[in-house]
Design a protein around this nucleic acid. Structure first.
Lengths: 220, 220, 220, 220
DNA sequence: TATGAATGAGTCTTCATTCAT
DNA sequence: TATGAATGAAGACTCATTCAT
């Protein structure tokens, strides 16, 4: 550069690992590995190695393996719902369309991302980490079901949907989504025959089925 | 007891010889603990203790912890389907009733038993035990979906159900069942707020929903 | 039989294991296994199984594995020497012949029998069982060397052998014998290339060599 | 020390980082203990402790106890023979002197070092570790006997030695050496009465005996 | 900060020994 | 006596965590 001396090796700053990025990279690596092998069966060294740092470094950012685990959960349960709730407050179409839209959104933003593995993790470790179960319940399950329930209620109120116990119906909507997310991180990743159809398409079909039923008119 | 003296602590007979009963008791204890804490987080000694034997005894009946795990899976995936298939071959009622019946049966015989925890286990450990995933796929998933699919097809053939891609629809039926089983062994066992409604009732409602849809006639 | 009733299964007494034979069979089995795998690496159950009894039975005859070990040593160090000493007291031939004869006898009665494995055992475990080392030293080494030494002395006295420190020369005689016995139970049983020449023949050659030397007359 | 104060207990520096030195120290400690107590009877923790490290550290450098064992053998069977062969190619003296020299060298470089224990180890564990037997045979026995055989042949060719089956005679030379090495690590370390004469001196005597024989001229 | 060598508590597994049958 | 199921102390090995560099 401006210096006249030659041969200053000029360490290229490209690919310089930014220190601030470390925790994020560790959490990302941990998510992948915890989902793949389970919390207990994952070694912290693996996580560190996959994140490109040494074992010791991991402990500079996280007090313990459990601490890392909690971070993984927390970081991957973004506060999606506030934004979504806003979006849905002004939704114009029918409640059926709204349902489809909500389900699509969820799949696109969660089910189809690495964060989809979180469900499997939480389900698997809930009893070992009750606080995490509680946390997940409050941060994800409750707002998620509330959102869907509000859509169902909207449909009922408008006469579009039949009367129902919406807080139960919600699970008929949600369950296949959860199932899909877990499946793809377990059986779907192993047994070839277990790899199911296109998820997005299935979800659409499922919502339609719930809306219209499978019985013909003369069977009703 | 016939003895008038109280407080005879009734020391449990040590070193009882019960070769026949041991494996079953160990598998039972292991199922409970594996489901509760996960495979890796469960210590073999806990399993032994819960089964009322010593650590060493466990290894008299199972070559390794993994071997025990596989036994737990195998023993709890009874050959339910052959018998059921027979039963359904001669089913007299409508296909809707048949669906309800099939779902009820499954819940009664699996969902409502300790074996319900198996799903969580298999999902959680599938990637660590690919053979088990394969086994489960072949022994449970395949026959289970085949049975349901045949019922759906029966309904389509008789004009009771609309045309559908039955191999996909099956998952709309199954998913909430799977979900329920996993939920009750994870979130449901922790977060109070996560304890859902009565399962049997929910399943009934879910099947009805799939049959009739939630839209009012004027919305269709 | 004399009884008129039929169908008394008449358990055939053939192959009835005589109880008095048990300890001997156990010791025999133990010798083989200890020599083959070493003391620590041999499981008592293997010994019992090879002797055709159950693990528990072994402990009826021997207080512990160590006790069995000591019995193995003791039983296989027959009191050969007293008899031999007698035999040699009246030996008529030359001292060279006497040496050959003594060495042949030892190989025939020990080196060529399963008891040959004892040396390997004793050498290997001497430091773990000092009493056994002591015992072996007193019962085998001392009388054995004494016998040979007396033969050497006889030769010296008669002018057949040169003057020598006979208590040292003895080891020149003995060492290859010991070596042979250990070799055949270790390297000789493994590496094909390690299987040496005919032992008896080698011993003869060795004694001849010690008697005559390998140098030609003009080299002396 | 330069410090005038006494009794500063000089706590040994814990958690020292000495990656380079560890394997060697561990192998050294292992050699001693394996030779002393046998492979199976030695606990890895003992080895670690004697090497001044913790159990875990041992497994940082060796995959398993067996791995350590193999390292012990390998490290202590330096490639002595290539160098020696060179030395002997240009030997000037008589073949008798050459024999004496070869035997002296072996005793000085092996018999008189901790590596002398290796023979006992290999003999004792050959059947449990066939690869090691093979390895020892190829790396030690074969070159060792080849070297001695070549010396004998040299003597025969020069008319210094009588005709002989040199591949057998070699064992008459070697056996007492092997015997000596094993003896000093077993009986010799226990039974006081078993502690034999000075080894070096005995070897010299033994070679002389083989060269000249023990018979007087008039006895031949 | 970053590293990775070192630690040691914790886990699976073995096996000599006991004991109810 | 004989059996073999049961025991539990002991040993190999792992891995989260620490700490000297």
């Amino acid at each position: 550069m401006s210096s006249p001396t030659l041969h200053v090796p000029e360490t290229p700053p490209k690919r310089e690992r930014r220190k601030e990025a470390r925790p994020g990279e560790l959490v990302k690596a941990a998510l992948d590995l915890f989902v793949e092998k389970g919390f207990a069966a994952t070694r912290v060294e693996e996580v560190a190695t996959r994140a490109g740092v040494s074992k010791g470094t991991l402990f500079l950012y996280f007090q313990s393996k459990e601490d890392l685990f909690k971070a993984v959960i927390r970081e991957n349960i973004a506060n999606l719902f506030p934004a979504w709730n806003e979006e849905f407050k002004t939704f114009a179409g029918s409640s059926a369309e709204m349902l489809h839209h909500a389900m699509d959104l969820w799949w696109l933003n969660v089910g189809n991302t690495p964060a989809s593995g979180i469900v499997k993790l939480v389900i698997g470790e809930a009893q070992n980490f009750p606080e995490i179960a509680e946390f997940y319940q409050k941060e994800v399950v409750a707002p998620g079901t509330a959102l869907l329930q509000s859509i169902l209620q909207r449909g009922v109120d408008s006469g579009e949907f039949v009367h129902m116990e919406s807080h139960k119906t919600v699970f008929s909507l949600i369950a296949p989504m959860i199932f899909l997310m877990m499946w793809k991180h377990s059986m779907g990743a192993c047994a070839a025959s277990a790899r199911i159809m296109d998820a997005q398409e299935f979800i659409h079909m499922h919502v339609d089925l719930l809306l219209n039923g499978m019985q013909t008119n003369n069977a009703r």
